[in-house]
Structures are given as C-alpha cells and as structure tokens.
Design a binder for these strands. Structure first.
Lengths: 189, 189
DNA sequence: AATCACTATGTCAATACTTATATAGCACAA
DNA sequence: TTGTGCTATATAAGTATTGACATAGTGATT
C-alpha cells in the first residue's frame, strides 16, 4: 500500500492529479510509476477518508485544476509509514524473470539480441540519470550534501539509481561476453 | 503479465502448485514472488486455456499432488514472451519511495534508524546470495560458464542479484555517513 | 474557423496481487 | 491418540494496477 503514501509525501506541496503524474515521470520514475486512471480515483478516495483536502483553482496554462493538500490526518499516516521500517522484498523485475528462462530460446543469437536490447535500454537510462545529476550539480551549489532535507533525500534515491543502473550496464556487458564465448564453444564443439 | 510466463518457464519440468511456490522461495526470490492463492487459480486458468495440462500423482511425502506440464501452446507463448524483448520500466521499490520522503520525519535519529534497518536487511540478503553462490560453486565444477543453459541463465540472475545487493549495501553505508554528518552540522549550527 | 498539442479530470472493465480462511492427508513424537 | 508441523489444494473478499475510452478547456498555428 505504498501509492497512497507516496501521494501523501508529494502533497507536502499542493498538487493536482495531473501535476502528480508529471512528478512521477520526472523524479520518481526510478522507483515507482502510476497512471492517471489510478491517481484520480485514489485522490478522491483519500479525500473521502480525510487524509487530504481539495479546492478548484485556476491553471497557468490549461483548464481549471483540482488542487489537493495534505491534511493533519494524512501527515500522521505518512509518518506511520516511514516509522514502520523499510518496505522490502516486494520487487518484481520482469527482465530478470526473462533472463532466468532465456535458455528456452533455442537460437543462441536470439538470446544475445535480447541482452543487447537490455544493454541499450540500460545505457539510455544511465544517460538520463547522469544528465539529471549533472544539471542538478550545475544549478545548485549546495549539491549534494548542503541541500535541504526535501531535496537531500530525493538525491539519495538518484544516487542509488545511478549505482544500480551502472551495475546493470556492467552486468549486461559481462553477460554478452560470456554468452558469445558459449556460442563459439557450441559451434566449435 | 509476467507471472503466467514464469509458470510456463518453470513447467519445463513437471511441477505441482506447491512445488512452484517452493521454487519461488528458493531460486526466484531475487526478482519475483507469488502466493499460493495466486498460483493455484492461475494454473487452473492456464490449463483451461490449453497452455498446460495436469494429472494427479502420488507425493513422496504428503498427500497426492496435481502435477502440471507445459503443452505445445504454452511453449509457443513462452517463446513469444522472450522474443518480444525485455520487460523494463515496471519496477516498484517501496523502500526507495520511503527514502525519497524521509525528510518528513522531523527527528533526524529516526531517519538514521530507518537507514540502519535497511542496511541490516541488505547485509542479510547479501549473505544469503553469497552462500547460495558458494554452495553452487563448490558442488558443480562446471560453475559458472560450463553450466548447461538451464542453469547458466539462472546463474546470470544470481550474478546481477549479487551486484545489485552489493551496490545497495555500499549505498546504505554512504547514506548513513552523509546523514550523520548532516546531523552533526545541524547540532553545531 | 479549423486544427493541433497539451492540459485537465474522470469512468469502466479487466487483470494482478494480497490477506485471510478452510480443508485434509501424512509422518513423527509425546 | 493427541498434537504438531509440513504437505497439498482451494476459495473469497478486498486492494492495486493497467489499458481503453470519454470529455472538455486553452493557446498557438494554419
């Protein structure tokens, strides 16, 4: 039940559902995703539960928005979530499930193609994260350890994102090398 | 829609639902989890769809089991899943969502406690993976690159698991150091 | 005036997953 | 023989998530 808590965390600042979706795509994509069709109903439900409140306001650029704010009850629930200890052991990694069964592809070249695609994806992702870090570093002299809490902790998640994606890139490269050697051996033998 | 494909992958060998659950806990825990209450109905559904077939057989140790096998249609669907390219960008990492909003905890010590718990978890997990690797290495002289495909690809997932968990451990240690320095600075300032 | 791209909010149906509960066989020990 | 723990299968209710669809305002361009 993390999405509701993520929304509570985001509503430290007032946000519309649409804003929240943007925020997911900009800053949280490393560890969570959510569609508008999940966000809007959940915001309504959370308002009904008294965790957040809303009012309609003008938009700078488009039609009027419904702006949500966190209520006191929402702050307490957010606090409880963070105090309950780390949420671990729930991850599902689709591409690793695929790698586990990659031997099912009888054509060795197809398995190598799979890994090449994965490597390309990881490199693109790494580029994104590195640009994101470079921009942040260039624009804020406090980066990273002088940042206020509200940015310091997000920076920690970017840091782990970078480490993990680098590990993924190196792993893909090693896998490809090992798979190519196996292919050669298979052809020779 | 990965779970059905994971089940298809496992059914390279005949398995009961109970066996499959064991397999999740033993070898797939790095990247997927599933409860029996999800496995049993899905096996029934997949049998109705003609992806797998079953028959009842004796158990070595307990009551009779329903043993499932992959049908030709299931093999084709497994092949299609692997040929469609890597499933990426769907991961949800609860503890990172928490870290992102950790600044909400006004008490700095609580944030540090959170990170210490996370580090302890990651170290336990690393121990498990390292034992698992050591055991494999000790018991099979072909380890790792002489293994047959059916074990080579699983070994790749263990390898990435190790790299990622090590990255997590190092990151937690760095985070703790940085957070402790911030606490000192906050007390001094 | 029409079109386009983006902003903005929502609903619906289907699928995926979790938690709790029920039932029962089998082996072993107290 | 009673209990304990593991094996084994299953259902029900509730929550979470996805993908498709519907609607409409706004600003800029054609």
């Amino acid at each position: 039940m993390s999405l509701r808590h993520i929304l509570l965390g985001m509503l430290q600042q007032p946000h519309s559902g649409y804003d929240i979706k943007k925020e997911f795509e900009k800053s949280l994509r490393n560890f969570w995703r959510a569609e508008l069709s999940q966000i809007y109903p959940l915001l309504q439900k959370m308002e009904a539960e008294g965790l957040i409140s809303s009012k309609v306001g003008a938009s700078d650029i488009g039609p009027r928005k419904r702006i949500y704010r966190r209520a006191a009850k929402g702050s307490r629930e957010l606090n409880a979530w963070l105090s309950d200890g780390p949420v671990v052991g729930t991850e599902r990694i689709g591409y690793l499930a695929q790698v586990y069964f990659l031997g099912h592809l009888k054509d060795h070249d197809k398995a190598i193609t799979f890994m090449e695609e994965l490597l390309a994806y990881m490199r693109r992702w790494l580029d994104l994260l590195e640009s994101s870090e470079a921009e942040w570093r260039a624009n804020d002299p406090r980066y990273p350890d002088g940042l206020p809490d509200s940015e310091f902790y997000p920076q920690l998640t970017l840091d782990l994102g970078l480490r993990k994606v680098r590990a993924n890139v190196e792993w893909c490269e090693d896998c490809l090398e090992r798979m190519q050697k196996r292919r050669q051996r298979a052809r020779a033998g």
